[in-house]
Amino acid sequence: MSSELLVKKLPNDIGGDASGKIERVEHELLPWEKRCHALADVLDFHKIINTEEKRRGVEALGSEMIGKLSYYERWIVAFANILFQKGILTPGDLAIKMEELEARHTSETARAHPNA
């Protein structure tokens, strides 16, 4: 592909591309996916991240990540990046919080299954 097309068409801009047969797939959202959707709406209500910022945030992940992450995985990663850019959170804040949550889960599981 000529590099010119990379400039003209960002990863989300797929209208008009050749593509395969439509598979009529659907799935019930997982609990975390639904929470992620609600989070998106609340971020929009509070003008923290609006819908267009979210769309651009997903696009900014680049085509490899867009290709490999699922729909809501892309959303939550985009939210984190946008929050870093806006100075609302730092990557360190997020990393520490995720470690805490993982430790919290491990200790809860250990309590629930003492013999496990």
């Binding site: 997982l30 975390w32 989070l39 809501y72 939550i76 984190a80 959170l89 997020l94 919080k97």
Partner: peptide, 10 residues
């Protein structure tokens, strides 16, 4: 990603 969602929200 599930953890990341909870972390960002909290």
């Amino acid at each position: 990603y599930d953890l990341m969602e909870t972390a960002v929200r909290e």
